[in-house]
Amino acid sequence: MKINEVLLQSVTKIIVFIILTLAIYLFFSGHNNPGGGFVGGLVLASSFVLMLLAFDIETVKHGIPVDFKLVAALGAAIVVITGLGAVVFGEAFLTQTFRVFDIPVFGLIELSTVTIFELGVSLTVVGVVVTIILSISEDVS
């Protein structure tokens, strides 16, 4: 894929950051509003797709030197391990818990183990989607 259109590339550079912000926003808003791990991960992955469309693979790989297979594996591991964490505390597998903390400046903040679980989900989604796209485009180009 060698689309060298200056316009697309310049726009992508800006848009990617907007998409990334959106992804992170969606990830954290998932608890109380639409969003969550899946959508967050997918949006994040789609920013990579956009980058792949705008630049060629080598540039993207050089810019983000991450093995996305490992990211996916890490995500799946986090998901399973958070489940096991509950077992350590004598609860059933995958029991989630939450607590509201009063942190100065930020006010009341609810922290929940679901967030870690969702982080694992997001990482897996990102890892898998990017792995799929990358391996196909590597093969065809």
């Binding site: 791990g37 594996a73 939450f98």
Partner: peptide, 30 residues
Amino acid sequence: AGGQNIVNTILGDFRAFDTMLEVVVLFIAG
């Protein structure tokens, strides 16, 4: 579950087992 988005609490808490296995399926597919 301390969340207001019911769909996401089901995914992350009530039926987290489903989600865990789904993640595994996703990983295997990848």
